[in-house]
């Protein structure tokens, strides 16, 4: 049965699309990210990670604690280029 529930809101990825990519061999969050962009959007994986890790567990049969966490990269939230350019100068 078709399952078009969206698990990654930034990139509009459905459960079926995510499962298909896992079945193709992308069995970690960071590998999936490179193939289908989950975790590359505005949330940087903060909203979708648990849902997607659960799909990896279901398909690969691995336990949650066996699955590598995605690499965390800065900034922790999106930041305007003009603010990044200013740095902390305006706080002095």
């Amino acid at each position: 049965m078709k399952d078009d529930v969206i698990l990654c809101f930034c990139e509009d990825l459905t459960r079926d699309e995510i499962r298909e990519a896992i079945k193709k061999g992308a069995t970690s969050f960071d590998e999936l990210k490179r193939l289908i962009r989950c975790g590359m959007g505005a949330c940087q994986g903060k909203t979708c990670e648990e849902n997607i890790q659960r799909e990896i567990m279901t398909i690969t049969g691995r336990k949650r604690e066996e699955l590598p966490l995605p690499r965390q990269r800065p900034p922790s939230v999106g930041i305007y280029l003009e603010d990044a350019a200013r740095g902390d100068d305006d706080e002095k």
């Binding site: 990269r73 800065p74 900034p75 305007y80 003009e82 990044a84």
Partner: peptide, 27 residues
Amino acid sequence: WQFLQELSGKITGTFPALKKLRVVRQW
């Protein structure tokens, strides 16, 4: 963070219209 600051300065100088674009990730 020096990279983020330096490059953001160059980009907003060369493309002022991009100043309200949000950086979401660096590597």
